[in-house]
């Protein structure tokens, strides 16, 4: 089976500093895959390269199907309504009807005429996911789902995400600082440190790996990230 996303030997340098060093990563079709790592490990660079916002220095990226991106920090169009934000998610498509998104994420229907800048962080994250879904993607890249959100909100978002994944053919790459959340949610996981993939495998295996528990799951041994 070919993967939905296949990244091979990806290297990205910024002004001489290497942000990503020979990264190889695959997202299997209809699966959720996690990429975990500390701040500055190179996660955002990988996302930008994957979404075509920066050009890699070497390596190849293959995506099967449409890819949509839920960016870190949500990145709303703050002066526009929720409905307009959603419609813009379908900019590259001809169909721009937002009704299916309100069926999928009913919470959004109630706030469809509110300006996105006035929403709470959790609501904005929901809009960002809805906006990405408007592109009718086969692959969804979610950058920092939980960042800055209260645990209850995160739980609800995760519930929505599980539902989406169950009801649609959707491959997901989840980039997360919260490793416990990512390993719970996903089947496969990669660990990025200083621009290199240092560990990868089934999420359940990684969750028991002492190096992961120590560095990312608050184990007893403290390792500087």
């Amino acid at each position: 089976m070919t993967g939905a996303v296949q990244i091979d030997n990806l290297t990205v340098r910024y002004a001489g500093a290497t942000a990503l060093d020979d990264v190889t990563l695959a997202v299997a079709e209809n699966e959720m895959t996690a990429l975990i790592g500390a701040n500055g490990a190179g996660k955002s660079t990988l996302v930008k390269a994957l979404c075509g916002l920066i050009r890699p220095d070497s390596g190849t990226i293959t995506v099967h199907g449409r890819l949509a991106h839920v960016p870190e920090g949500r990145e709303m169009f703050p002066d526009m309504t929720v409905d307009d934000n959603l419609r813009l998610g379908a900019w590259r498509r001809r169909r721009r009807d937002t009704a299916p998104i309100y069926d999928l994420l009913p919470d959004l229907a109630a706030i469809r005429s509110r300006r996105a800048g006035t929403l709470s962080g959790g609501q904005q994250q929901m809009v960002a996911i809805g906006r990405a879904l408007m592109a009718d993607p086969e692959v969804l890249v979610i950058d920092e789902l939980s960042l800055g959100l209260a645990p209850m909100i995160v739980t609800s978002l995760v519930g929505h995400l599980r539902n989406l994944h169950a009801t649609r053919n959707l491959s997901v790459l989840l980039i997360e600082q919260n490793a416990r959340l990512a390993l719970d949610l996903c089947r496969h996981a990669y660990v990025l440190e200083s621009g290199r993939i240092v560990l990868h495998g089934p999420a359940a295996t990684l969750a028991r790996d002492p190096r992961v528990t120590a560095a990312y799951l608050g184990g007893h041994v403290t390792v500087t990230p």
Partner: peptide, 9 residues
């Protein structure tokens, strides 16, 4: 409104 978000979509 948000140049980066425009690129994202």
């Amino acid at each position: 409104s948000n140049r980066y978000a425009a690129q994202v979509v």
